[in-house]
């Protein structure tokens, strides 16, 4: 679908996300009226109120973090699903997220800085995913069952390695940082890393969008894509690297958040169809929206305590996933 026909839909999606952003900045232990939120964002307030600190220094980074994590995972899910030609693929299902989490924790364990750990997390995501792909590749591509089973196993491997690191950790502070890091949540988000992670994630999503047409071809299957003129090997590699990079950025901000990368592409496919020029931006926006909304619930549902975000997304994601599986099983039976 060419841009001129996508533009209105894209604008609508952006508007919804922006409205959700304003709402999320207003709600919390202390509610800030939306008019005031807009005034603060526009710099039209008195400049020194408690509300200003609350909105700009506490809630805004968290909301931007949520949008970044959701968009990155939504896009990564679409990329992996096109690469593997499988609607059940996602960063957590095939072990990319767990591998990435291991890299992040390993970075803390060996005393790397923030950027260094993010880098290590990317390297591990790539290594874990390549292990899954290399193991499950057959002459005719990637058979779905093998990929999923291998992915689950590789995910367990990295979960075990994370456990090993935590066991080996001798320092209480380090241990608690590792545990909190992987619990899946956004309460520890600050501007310092976000200032480069969010733009980097945006650039990667934009790069993926440039490949939208290639993703259409890739999901036809290697044989067909090559017949129609695609260099499937190089495009596939590029898509893999993008998916792993996006996953590791999301994991670095918020730990392992399951099901966003799986459920969001499905929902987006229902809304805008399977053509990637529409599906990819829709997934990124919807992913951002979902994590933002879920995080709002996490912050406010059990005030003054906070629910773990990762737990909430799983509580939402599991029933959705089961519904998808059920409908696929029924379709399979009908054939």
């Amino acid at each position: 679908m060419p841009l001129r026909r996508r533009a209105p839909l894209l604008a609508l999606g952006l508007a919804v996300v922006l409205a959700a952003l304003v709402v999320s900045l207003g709600v919390g232990v202390i509610d800030v009226p939306f008019g005031e939120v807009l005034a603060i964002l526009g710099g039209r307030d008195d400049g020194a109120s408690l509300h200003r600190t609350l909105v700009l220094d506490m809630r805004l980074p968290r909301a931007v973090g949520a949008l970044t994590v959701g968009a990155a995972l939504g896009a990564a899910g679409v990329l992996l699903q096109a690469l593997l030609r499988d609607a059940l693929a996602s960063p957590t299902i095939i072990g990319t997220a767990q591998a990435s989490g291991f890299g992040r924790v390993l970075g803390v364990f060996v005393g790397l800085g923030y950027a260094g750990s993010v880098g290590l997390s990317f390297v591990m995501a790539l290594a874990g995913t390549l292990l899954v792909l290399a193991t499950s590749r057959s002459r005719r591509g990637f058979p779905a069952q093998t990929v999923l089973l291998t992915g689950v196993n590789v995910g367990m491997l990295f979960a075990a390695l994370i456990g090993l690191l935590q066991y080996l950790s001798r320092d209480e502070g380090q241990l608690s940082r590792m545990v909190l890091m992987l619990l899946g949540g956004l309460w520890q988000v600050t501007w310092a890393p976000l200032a480069w992670i969010a733009p980097l994630a945006a650039v990667l999503v934009a790069a993926a969008l440039l490949l939208a047409r290639h993703l259409d071809l890739l999901s036809l299957g290697e044989e067909d894509a090559r017949r129609l003129g695609q260099h499937t090997q190089s495009v596939g590699t590029l898509v893999l690297v993008l998916a792993c990079a996006l996953t590791s950025l999301a994991v670095s901000i918020a730990g392992v958040i399951a099901f966003v990368g799986l459920v969001v592409p499905h929902a987006a496919r229902r809304l805008v169809g399977p053509v990637h020029a529409a599906l990819l931006p829709a997934s990124a926006l919807l992913g951002g929206l979902l994590v933002l909304a879920t995080d709002c619930v996490a912050r406010t549902a059990a005030q003054p305590n906070e629910l773990p975000l990762g737990v909430l997304t799983s509580l939402i994601g599991v029933p959705c996933f089961l519904a998808v599986l059920h409908s696929m099983a029924r379709k399979g039976a009908a054939r």
């Binding site: 096109a82 047409r213 259409d216 071809l217 999901s219 036809l220 299957g221 067909d224 003129g229 053509v275």
Partner: peptide, 23 residues
């Protein structure tokens, strides 16, 4: 014209034919 083709996602006919334009 191959014997068969199994697109992973059920795209519309127009879009599927359009992928012939890729090159």
């Amino acid at each position: 014209v191959p014997q068969r083709s199994n697109p992973a996602f059920p795209v519309a006919v127009r879009h599927f034919v359009g992928m012939g334009r890729f090159a």
